[in-house]
Amino acid sequence: MLSLLLTSLGHASTFMPPQASTIAPAVDRLYAFLLIISVLASILVIAGMLYFIFKYRRKSETEKSAYITHNHLAEFLWSFIPLVLFIVAFVWGWKVYHDLRFAPENAYEIFVRGQQWSWEFEYQNGHKSPAELYVPVGRPVKLLMTSSDVIHSFFIPSFRVKQDVLPGRYSSIWFEVKEPGEYQIFCTEYCGLQHSSMLAKVVAVPQKDFDMWVSGKAVSNLSPEEQGHKTYIARNCNSCHSIDGSAVVGPTFKGNFGLTRQFEDGGSAVVDENYLRESILDSQKHIVKGYTKVMPTYEGVLEDKEVEALIAFIKSLKN
């Protein structure tokens, strides 16, 4: 019975995300150790307590209890045994922490910028990628991270790594991915309104495909509309512009193309490709009647092909 329990706890990774980094099994072994001693200690205390409640329940109102004030051996044991277990947990935790913290010398470096409420990744050749962190499989990757505004925290559950991302200084994190695939990235330091949608994905691919991708030669098999939809999500356009016709912070994209827009300053324009491009890159120039001037400019932020994809996407959203 007990051994069955211990075996199932030994496979405790059922409560953990998939083990996708080289360090994840080491973290999970520590987790299994902690879980097993925790469950055993809890059972000991709770079962002892329940047994005493039953065994020594009050049988008569005049009943007397034993007068026991202390017992040196028992007190020594229940101080010393927990202390030993805590020290084991501490040393083991230290070892894992050390391995989590220090990247191998040959790690491939990628620059990460966090801002309310998106992540951007920049590669050594200047290539930028929003919301998708492409990394090669089987090679240590070191992220050098900073924030443009408030404190964020970069967390990849499947890799068991997390590090705060601070304004005005750099912090780093490293991992080596075992299998190609997509893995969730969260922001775990509360950073305001859209904190829970400050998400991104790790896309782990073989080294060859990674080299192609980072040099910009990778052939995308997505149509411009699909590419635009991806950008719409990745660049968080969706937090202010809906695609279902509802007005949020800004006008909806649905049926937008071809409309005649009245501006706050009295002018008007027909929504065409040039109008859309201007509205994205120089967003403060014209404000549609009924809305406020809150959209940041995307000049220098979005690449040309992203703008083109977005325009194709907006055009495709007919009424």
Binding site: M16, V27, L30, Y31, L34, L35, S38, F86, A89, F90, W92, G93, W94, K95, V96, Y97, H98, D99, L100, S153, F155, P157, R160, V161, K162, T188, E189
Partner: peptide, 16 residues
């Protein structure tokens, strides 16, 4: 609490 005090473990659990 002991699990969270174990520094290598806390990295995963912190702020979750």
């Amino acid at each position: 609490g002991i699990m969270l005090a174990t520094v290598g473990m806390d990295v995963h659990f912190h702020d979750t």
